[in-house]
């Protein structure tokens, strides 16, 4: 453990426990529900839990973005696709389709859990940060986190930021190109 000790007030512990329950129950729901729509709903619950955790650490802007982008747009699109393709009907899969993936899955779980334990061993157990300072003015007040984020994104990480933006635009253009197929003559088909 790091040398920094923080005394937690009971409300913040309560908030943390509530957020943790939301995140874990949601995450379990995503992988256990048979119905994809229910899984998507569980995912929203997890995202909400993460947002609450962000608020509890005074990262209000990130919390808002979490809800607006992930819950408000991305999962809506998931649901949109699920509804459109009609995969929401319960499928009776009696045979495991991917037996060969099981050892790989176990390996993945091992790596993830091992990584988490290694991370916790040398950093603060809640935040994963190596040292936590509550004295720093900008973080402690929670007022400046939009300014901080903006400064970081547009100065230090400008190249990565712009590259991500370009990547997204290229992906959108590609998707549009794939979805659009030229159809030359339409009026003749009407006549049939």
């Amino acid at each position: 453990m790091s040398a920094v000790t923080i005394s937690y007030a009971w409300p913040s512990i309560l908030v943390f426990v509530a957020a943790a329950i939301l995140i874990l129950v949601g995450a379990l729901g995503v992988i256990t529900y048979k119905n994809p729509v229910h899984s998507a709903l569980s995912l929203i619950m997890t995202l909400f839990g993460v947002a609450v955790a962000f608020v509890a650490q005074q990262a209000d802007f990130l919390a808002a973005v979490q809800i607006i982008v992930y819950a408000g747009a991305i999962v809506v699109l998931f649901l949109f696709v699920i509804m459109f393709l009609g995969v929401d009907r319960k499928e009776h899969v009696h045979v495991e389709p991917f037996v060969s993936q099981r050892p790989l899955a176990a390996l993945g779980v091992l790596i993830t859990v091992g990584g988490l334990i290694a991370l916790m061993a040398e950093s603060h157990w809640v935040t994963g940060v190596k040292s936590v300072s509550t004295v720093g003015t900008a973080l402690a007040t929670g007022q400046a986190n939009v300014r901080q984020l903006g400064t970081a994104v547009f100065t230090t990480y400008l190249f990565a930021f712009e590259a991500t933006a370009a990547l997204l635009v290229i992906a959108v253009v590609g998707a549009v190109l794939l979805a659009r197929r030229e159809r030359t003559v339409l009026t003749e088909e009407v006549d049939e």
Partner: peptide, 25 residues
Amino acid sequence: NPPMGILLMLAMSGISVYGVMLAGW
């Protein structure tokens, strides 16, 4: 008067989409 302020409105309008969407589905 949360620090995220007006963004809360955007977040909530994002959530209310679910109500409409899931009601129909």
